[in-house]
Nucleic acid binder design. Structure first.
Length: 195
DNA sequence: CTACTAACCTATTCATATT
DNA sequence: AATATGAATAGGTTAGTAG
């Protein structure tokens, strides 16, 4: 254990968003809503996707996905006794698909090639630059990363030894298989629907 | 230190605009 | 229909902070 582990923020690195602290009132509303509808539509999470994350985390923590008995949870109020199939209404409409213009995509792809894991600062900068909510930028990067790592998972190809220098923390699963796959082969036409 | 949990991640699936 | 890709999901990891 080293002394001097005080926060020595690396300059310019990519940090994560600062931890949100919900007030009691907010938490109350969130929990109440969750108990009614664990799968809220896009309307719930406005531009700030903190709420969406909150629901994701809570579903995971509570081991959702299963069909619990009529009770089991602390929420019970008046137990409906004639319509137990009210779960279908749970899932609401999802957010409308965002259509990125070619220029927006160009910016995103360029950024991705430079750094596939942008921190909150850079994501917000990008978002502002292309005029799209930061949450959409984050999702875009997630999708992009997943789709590129998806191909060829068994192969392990060492990458530049340079980057191995700063091992802040190892990766979990296996070595990052950053094979020499070409990057985005984006032969984009010229469609720029400015939604 | 430990417990809790927001933030973030991957992998997969669902949905839809474009070809 | 087939393809590409944005949105949502389950579920695991990283890290801030209250006790």
């Amino acid at each position: 254990v080293a002394e001097d582990t005080s926060a020595h923020k690396m300059v310019g690195a990519n940090h994560r968003r600062s931890r949100t602290k919900f007030t009691e009132d907010q938490l109350k509303i969130l929990i109440d809503t969750f108990n009614q509808k664990p799968y809220p539509g896009y309307k719930i999470n406005t531009e700030e996707s903190r709420i969406q994350i909150w629901f994701q985390n809570r579903r995971a923590r509570f081991g959702f996905q299963k069909r619990p008995g009529p009770e089991t949870l602390e929420s019970n109020q008046s137990h409906g006794q004639d319509q137990p199939d009210t779960e279908f209404q749970s899932r609401e409409a999802r957010r409308c698909r965002t259509i990125y213009s070619t220029s927006q995509l160009r910016t995103l792809i360029e950024a991705f090639m430079k750094n596939p894991y942008p921190g909150i600062d850079y994501r917000e900068q990008l978002a502002k630059e292309i005029g799209v909510p930061e949450s959409r930028v984050q999702i875009w990067f997630q999708n992009r990363r997943s789709r590129f790592h998806l191909r060829r998972k068994g192969e392990v190809v060492s990458l530049e030894p340079e980057d191995r220098g700063k091992i802040s923390e190892g990766l979990q699963g296996a070595e990052d298989t950053q094979n020499g796959t070409n990057f985005p082969r984006d032969s984009h036409s010229s469609r720029a629907r400015t939604w």
